[in-house]
Amino acid sequence: MDTRQIIGWNLRRLRVAKGISQERLALEASIDRAYVGRVERGEENVTVATLDALASVLSAKVAELFVEPAKNAKPTPPLRAGRKPKLEG
């Protein structure tokens, strides 16, 4: 796995663990949603500033994006499709 793929793997893992969609992550990090998808697929060379913005939204350290997954690690499943139900107030 190259560095771009490792960053993408960890970005998706952290994002899904927080229950945040790509769209919400992009909005809160002030970047394009399609760009987030390309980063998660390991298709982009990400700047340090972008990594910092993404990590900040995920309440993570930038270093967490560089942790190589275990050899037997399974890909993170996607979030459930659709909108979350509105909470009754």
Rank of each mutant, 00 (worst) to 15 (best):
R33F: 01
L79N: 04
T50W: 00
R13V: 01
K74G: 02
R4H: 12
T3F: 02
E88H: 13
Y35R: 12
R15W: 10
R24D: 14
D32N: 10
R41M: 09
L79A: 06
L25A: 00
E43P: 01
L79Q: 04
T3R: 06
F66E: 10
D32I: 00
G37P: 06
E88V: 14
V67K: 15
D52S: 15
L51N: 04
I20D: 05
R15H: 08
R80Y: 01
L79M: 08
T50A: 15
R80V: 14
K18T: 04
P85M: 10
W9F: 14
V57M: 07
L58N: 05
T76M: 08
S59D: 15
L51E: 07
L87E: 12
V16W: 08
A29S: 14
E44W: 00
R13P: 05
K18E: 12
N10Y: 11
R24W: 00
N72Q: 11
V46P: 03
E23L: 11
E64G: 01
V67M: 12
G37V: 05
S59I: 01
V36I: 12
V16K: 11
T3W: 00
I20K: 07
R41C: 03
M1N: 07
R33E: 06
Q5E: 15
G82T: 07
G19I: 05
F66N: 06
E44H: 04
K86N: 14
N45R: 14
L54P: 09
A81M: 13
R38W: 06
S56G: 09
D2C: 01
E64H: 05
P77I: 03
P75Q: 13
L54W: 09
L65P: 10
L27P: 00
D2E: 09
K86P: 12
V67H: 07
L58Y: 08
P77W: 02
V39C: 00
P75C: 12
R38M: 11
R38I: 01
L27K: 11
L25I: 13
V62M: 08
K74D: 13
S56H: 13
D2G: 13
I20F: 04
I31H: 03
R83S: 15
A55H: 07
L25W: 13
A55L: 08
R33P: 06
R38Q: 12
G82N: 08
M1D: 06
L27A: 13
N45H: 11
R12N: 12
R12C: 02
R4G: 04
K84R: 15
G19Y: 09
L79G: 03
I6K: 04
D52C: 04
S56K: 15
K74S: 15
R83L: 14
T47F: 05
G82Y: 08
N72V: 10
A49G: 09
G19N: 12
E40K: 06
L27M: 10
P77N: 06
V16A: 01
A60I: 10
R12E: 11
Q5Y: 03
Q22F: 02
I7T: 06
S21C: 04
L51Y: 05
V36L: 02
A81D: 15
V57E: 09
Q5P: 00
E64Y: 01
A81T: 12
I20Q: 06
I7F: 01
R12W: 03
Q5R: 13
T50I: 13
G19M: 11
P69T: 05
T47M: 07
N45E: 13
N10A: 01
P78S: 06
V48N: 02
L87H: 09
